[in-house]
Design a protein around this nucleic acid. Structure first.
Lengths: 116, 116
DNA sequence: ATAAATGTGTAGTATATAGTACACATGACA
DNA sequence: TGTCATGTGTACTATATACTACACATTTAT
């Protein structure tokens, strides 16, 4: 599923419960022209900027990292973390490329709990 | 130190031992115009594309991830790994933001050795 | 029935990205 | 001393990114 299809689907779902989730009203709240949001949802144009994707995530109550990923982007705050210690993070991330989900989850939990 | 300064410094160091490391010759080997490389080194223009930075890293025997970081970029292969499992990686990387180097190094080693 | 709201087609814009092409003054060197 | 290579200034160019503005037909609400 593309970024646009995903947005349309989730916006429509909200719209069926609350008519403030029309293309026009959502567009206005995230600060773009209605025609632009319409084109984004139909895949007529590329996904918008990170800032607009974040606004959309907030509006639709979705995970911004997931939406950014669907848009082919990686959050700029993550990029900055990596850029500060490129060798360490590049090495770690490549190591984790084919690690199972539960392993990554567990490492994150261990780090959070200070178990390392 | 900027990307350009760093490149110039390291290219000049190689040049002092081997005159094939002139702006012109390096430019030709990495596939850009000499004037362009000159401008890059002096910060007259933004750093080049990821592909050219990789060619430069190879040519100067530098770590591509470090050069990319200096250029304000993150390797596209890392971005792809993150985009495939955005929640897991976003969470982990943010957890590791302020972890000490040795902790990150150790996690990478543990993963490599299968100790997890 | 009509006014308001809706979704979308067409056309255009500003800025960034990623360079090329050529000329020219300077310096090395044989 | 001529020529060959070097570094760089100026002027362009092509493509991508990230949108706006307006018109218009359709659908919905009162």
């Amino acid at each position: 599923m593309t970024f646009g299809e995903y947005i349309r689907e989730h916006r429509e779902a909200l719209k069926s419960q609350d008519r403030r989730f029309s293309v026009r009203q959502v567009a206005q709240r995230i600060g773009v022209e209605p025609a632009y949001l319409s084109k984004i949802e139909r895949g007529d144009v590329a996904p918008p900027s990170e800032a607009k994707i974040r606004a959309l995530a907030e509006e639709l109550d979705e995970d911004p990292d997931v939406l950014l990923a669907m848009a082919g982007k990686v959050s700029s705050d993550l990029q900055e973390i990596i850029r500060k210690r490129p060798q360490l993070f590049a090495d770690l991330i490549r190591q984790l490329k084919s690690a199972p989900d539960h392993a990554i989850l567990r490492i994150a939990r261990d780090v959070r709990d200070g178990d390392w």
